[in-house]
Design a protein around this nucleic acid. Structure first.
Length: 578
RNA sequence: GCGCCCGUAGCUCAAGGGAUAGAGCAUCGGAUUUCUAAUCCGACGGUUGCAGGUUCGAAUCCUGCCGGGCGCACCA
C-alpha cells in the first residue's frame, strides 16, 4: 500500500477528535529531507502547536502516544523544533515488497473514487507539418492520460485538431494559384506543405493575398461546394501523416474531434448565449463580458464569422453533455493562459460550477541561443526531422556501446535499428517530461542522449542492465516470483533500494497532484541510482547464500518492472538488450 | 500602460512553507582483468536578482524595485 499512505491513515485516526480539520495536516507527512533523519517525517507538530497553544515538542509527544506505529516503524523520535522522524521496520519493507512481487500493479492501489477526465492535448493545425512546438503538449498530455488511467480514473483523450481554420483557406487559395499536380500526385503532403509555406509567406507580405485567403476560408465555412470538395480532398491526406507520426510516438487518442466537428453547432450556441443574456452585441461583435477582464471574449465577429473562443465553448458544452466529466485538462502552452482564464470564467457563467477545468500550461522549447528552437535558416523544426535526428544519434550511441562490449557485439543490424528507435524517441520524450512543465527549457540533442545523468537513455540502460542478469543466468522472472522467496535486507544498499521501490505509488500521486511528470522521472532517476549502488555492492548471482541470491534477484526483478512500468507511464518503451 | 509567468552553483535544471538549498554537465582526485564502466566513490562550486515584510521556520507567501519572456476587441 505504500508507507506514506499507511502513515497518513494512522495519523489521520490519531488526529480525529484531537484537532479540528485533521485532514489539512496530513500533507505534513512526507519523505525525509535527509536520510540520516529517517525514512519519513511528520511536520505537523509545529502548525498544531499554534492551534493547541502548546509547545511543538509536547504536541509531538502527545501525538505519538495516540498513533499506532510499532508494527510499522522501527524507530520514532522528535527532533529540532518538533519534527517527528520515522524509520520503517525492515520487516515491514520486506513484506511490502513481497506483495509487490506478485502484484501486476506493483503495489500501486487504484483510486477509491474514479473520476472522469477529458484530456485535450496535441491539437495541431493539420494543414501544416507538426513541428517542435507540438512535442510538449503531445508528450505531457499522453503521460497524464497514462498515469490517470493507471490509477483507475476514466480518461477520455481528445485531439482537438485545427482542421477548419485559415490554414485551409491558404491551401485552397494556394491550390488554385500555385499547385503542381504532378508533384501532388507523387507526394501529396510535400506539395501541400510547399503550398502552405508559400502562401503563408505571401500573405505576410501582401495584405491582398491575406484578404483572399480569408475569403476562401469564409467560402469554405459557408459551404461553397468547390471549397468543401477541396477540403475533403486535403483533410484525409493530412490526417494520414498525423497518424503515422502518432504511431511512431506511441500516442493514441480516443477521439479526434477537430474544429470542423463543432462548426454546425456555433450559430445555435451564440443564439443561446444571447438569449440567456450571457452574451451581448458590442461594436458589431457578439461578446461575453467577464468580471475581472479588460477585454471581452468575442464569440462572433462583426462580419459574422466565429472564433477560436466560440469553438472552445462549443467543445466544452459538447464534452460536458457527452461524457459528463468531473474534470477537463487542457494541455496547451502558457501563452494561451488568458484565453483559458476567460474560457473557464465563461464556463462558470454557463453553470458548470462543479466541473474542474485546468489549463495545464507549459513553457517554450528554446535553442542554445535562448530563443525559441529553430533551424539554422530560422524555420520551425519539423517534428519528423526531430525524431529522425534523435533516432540517428541514438543509433550512434547504440553502435558504439555494442561494439565496445567485452565479448564482442551482441546485436544484429535489425536489433540495433530497433533499439535506436526506442532509445531515440524515448530520449526525446524523457528530455521533455523531466523538465518542470511550467518553465521554458533549452533543447540539446547532446544532453538528451547523454549516457549519464537524468536522461531516458540512462534509464533504459539501467533497465537493460538489470535484465541482463536474468539473461546471463538463464532465469525466468515469472517462475522466480512464484517461488515466494523472502526478501532479505542485509546491507544499507539493499534497504535503500527496497525503500525506494515502495515509493512508486507516492511518485505517481505527486506527479498527478500538480500534473507534473517530472516528479515521476525524478523518482525513476533516484531508483536507478539506488539500484546502481546496490549493484556495485551486492553480488546477485554470486551472492553468499542461495536465499540471499533469491532475495536479490527479486529486488532486481522489482526494479526492472518498476522502471519498465514507470517508463510506460511516461510513454517510453524499453529494450531487453542495448 | 495593464495582466500572467520567470530569475537558484560556471552551464542545464531540481526542490509539496520545514532541518545543512540538491542533481547532472564541466573541472580536479580516486575505484576496474564488468552480474553491460552508458557505472560508482570523493572534492570544488550558492548572499536562491535586489530591498523590505509575514511566519516558530521563506528559494517558496506578501509589497516595492531591477532584469527577461509572453499575452492584452474581432488570428488560432
Amino acid at each position: 500500500m505504500g508507507a506514506l499512505r499507511e502513515l497518513k491513515k494512522r495519523f489521520s485516526e490519531a488526529l480525529r477528535g484531537f484537532v479540528d480539520e485533521p485532514e489539512t495536516y496530513l500533507n505534513q507527512l512526507r519523505r525525509s529531507g535527509a536520510p540520516q533523519f529517517g525514512d519519513y517525517q511528520a511536520n505537523l507538530a509545529m502548525p498544531l502547536a499554534k492551534q493547541l497553544r502548546k509547545s511543538p515538542q509536547e504536541v509531538a509527544r502527545t501525538l505519538l502516544d495516540r498513533v499506532k506505529l510499532d508494527d510499522l516503524c522501527q524507530s520514532v523520535n522528535v527532533a529540532g523544533p518538533g519534527f517527528i522522524n520515522l524509520r520503517l521496520h525492515d520487516r515491514w519493507l520486506a513484506e511490502e515488497l513481497a506483495h509487490a512481487v506478485v502484484d501486476p500493479r506493483l503495489g500501486v492501489p487504484q483510486v477509491a473514487e474514479p473520476r472522469t477526465c477529458v484530456v485535450d492535448y496535441s491539437a495541431p493545425n493539420i494543414a501544416k507539418p507538426m513541428h517542435v512546438g507540438h512535442i510538449r503538449s503531445t508528450v505531457i498530455g499522453d503521460c497524464l492520460c497514462r498515469m490517470l488511467r493507471f490509477v483507475g480514473h476514466r480518461v477520455i483523450s481528445d485531439n482537438h485538431i485545427g482542421d477548419w481554420g485559415t490554414q485551409f483557406g491558404m491551401l485552397i487559395y494556394g491550390w488554385r494559384h500555385f499547385a503542381d499536380p504532378i508533384a501532388y500526385q507523387r507526394d501529396p503532403l510535400a506539395e501541400l506543405g510547399r503550398i502552405y509555406r508559400h502562401v503563408n509567406q505571401l500573405a505576410e507580405q501582401d495584405p491582398q493575398v491575406a484578404q483572399k485567403v480569408l475569403e476562401e476560408t469564409a467560402r469554405l465555412h459557408a459551404g461553397d461546394p468547390e471549397n468543401v470538395a477541396l477540403w475533403r480532398e486535403f483533410v484525409p491526406r493530412c490526417l494520414a501523416e498525423l497518424d503515422a507520426l502518432y504511431r511512431r510516438l506511441g500516442v493514441q487518442f480516443d477521439y479526434t474531434l477537430g474544429e470542423s466537428f463543432y462548426h454546425d453547432r456555433l450559430p445555435d450556441l451564440v443564439d443561446e448565449l444571447l438569449q440567456r443574456g450571457i452574451a451581448r452585441e458590442s461594436e458589431g461583435a457578439i461578446c461575453i463580458f467577464l468580471d475581472g477582464f479588460e477585454a471581452p471574449m468575442i464569440i462572433r465577429k462583426k462580419d459574422g464569422a466565429f472564433l477560436y473562443a466560440t469553438t472552445d465553448l462549443a467543445t466544452l458544452v459538447y464534452r460536458v453533455n457527452t461524457w459528463h466529466p468531473d474534470c477537463i485538462l487542457y494541455v496547451v502552452d502558457h501563452r494561451q493562459s488568458l484565453h483559458f482564464r476567460q474560457l473557464f470564467t465563461a464556463a462558470n457563467l454557463l453553470g458548470y460550477k462543479a466541473l474542474q477545468l485546468e489549463h495545464v500550461s507549459f513553457g517554450t522549447i528554446l535553442g542554445e541561443d535562448g530563443r525559441p528552437f529553430r533551424t539554422r535558416a530560422g524555420d520551425t523544426v519539423a517534428l519528423e526531422d526531430l525524431l529522425e535526428e534523435a533516432v540517428r544519434r541514438a543509433r550512434e550511441v547504440v553502435d558504439a556501446n555494442d561494439d565496445a562490449k567485452p565479448d564482442g557485439p551482441e546485436l544484429s543490424e535489425v536489433d540495433r535499428a530497433r533499439v535506436a528507435e526506442v532509445v531515440g524517441i524515448g530520449a526525446l520524450k524523457y528530455a521533455d517530461l523531466s523538465q518542470n512543465r511550467t518553465s521554458d527549457y533549452v533543447f540539446s540533442f547532446d544532453k538528451m542522449l547523454a549516457m549519464t545523468g537524468n536522461t531516458g537513455t540512462y534509464m533504459q540502460y539501467a533497465y537493460a542492465r538489470v535484465r541482463s542478469i536474468f539473461a546471463k543466468a538463464g532465469l525466468n522472472a515469472d517462475s522466480l516470483r512464484q517461488e515466494g522467496a523472502a526478501i532479505l535486507l542485509t546491507t544499507p544498499e539493499e534497504r535503500a533500494l527496497a525503500l525506494e521501490l515502495t515509493r512508486f505509488d507516492e511518485a505517481i500521486e505527486l506527479a498527478l497532484t500538480d500534473w507534473r511528470p517530472n516528479q515521476l522521472t525524478a523518482y525513476l532517476f533516484d531508483l536507478a541510482n539506488k539500484y546502481s549502488a546496490f549493484y556495485e555492492n551486492c553480488p546477485v548471482l554470486k551472492a553468499e547464500s542461495p536465499a540471499l541470491r533469491q532475495s536479490r534477484l527479486l529486488l532486481c526483478d522489482l526494479t526492472a518492472r518498476t522502471i519498465q512500468k514507470g517508463l510506460e507511464l511516461l510513454g517510453i518503451g524499453v529494450v531487453e538488450k542495448m
